[in-house]
């Protein structure tokens, strides 16, 4: 351990580290937003959609969940460029993580919807709500409450998976730290630091999740 040397290096490079953190947060937040939006819609289709559509998305979800997220990232970057879609490394990375996130959110949405008693839909029908309004006002509010803890877990998985974008050359937090290590050889110190930062990011997400949970739980 070289504490004095390490703190000196830290003072000189905290701007870079901060930039890395911001990049990791930016990637994660975007992937979680896109993935959740798509996942909710796919989850609703999985539970209530017309059979052909349902089978199509069943296949999508099972297929994506069966592939390592690293393979998805490499595929988004290399395969898409082969068929003429040229994404930046960052764009390809966010796309891959969004798809990964959507498959997980779809599955937990479907599970949460399935757990709602059938009488809820019948009650909504009996007061003449259309199916669309039943989903919006009756089913989703109950499903979202139910799936919140699992969804928070998925969000932290996305933050952790964002480290894999370093493989295709996105300068997120882990990549930034690795560059600092290759310059300073302070691997122990910097790996400890980066682990701690990831822990802090995910701890914050968990706390926010718990806060929301406390707020929306019905007494």
């Amino acid at each position: 351990m070289e504490p004095i040397l390490f703190f000196n290096e830290l003072l000189g490079s905290y701007g870079l580290i901060l930039k890395g953190i911001l990049m990791t947060v930016k990637i994660s937040v975007q992937a979680i937003i896109y993935g959740t939006a798509a996942g909710l819609i796919i989850g609703i289709i999985l539970e209530y959609g017309y059979p052909p559509l349902r089978y199509l998305f069943r296949f999508y979800v099972d297929f994506i969940r069966g592939i390592p997220v690293l393979v998805q990232i490499l595929a988004a970057y290399y395969i898409l460029s082969v068929i003429g879609i040229q994404l930046s490394t960052l764009g390809a990375g966010i796309l891959a993580l969004s798809i990964f996130c959507s498959s997980h959110v779809a599955e937990i949405t479907r599970g949460a919807l399935q757990a709602i008693p059938k009488g809820q839909i019948e009650a909504a029908k009996s007061i003449s709500l259309t199916f669309r309004k039943t989903v919006i006002y009756v089913l989703l509010p109950q499903a979202l409450r139910q799936m919140l803890p699992t969804w928070v877990n998925t969000a932290t998985e996305i933050v952790k998976a964002s480290t894999l974008l370093s493989i295709i050359g996105v300068t997120e937090l882990l990549m930034t730290i690795q560059q600092l290590i290759s310059r300073t050889f302070l691997s122990l110190e910097f790996y400890f630091l980066v682990g701690f930062i990831y822990f802090l990011i995910n701890f914050t997400i968990e706390r926010i999740g718990k806060g929301i949970e406390a707020k929306v739980t019905i007494a």
């Binding site: 008693p117 009488g119 809820q120 019948e122 009650a123 909504a124 029908k125 009996s126 007061i127 003449s128 709500l129 259309t130 009756v138 509010p141 109950q142 409450r145 019905i218």
Partner: peptide, 20 residues
């Protein structure tokens, strides 16, 4: 069906109130 259904009201054995 939604329009036709609106001519009837129904109370269920299990109440089926919206819990949220």
């Amino acid at each position: 069906l939604v329009k036709h259904r609106s001519m009837t009201g129904m109370a269920f054995q299990q109440f089926n109130l919206f819990p949220h």
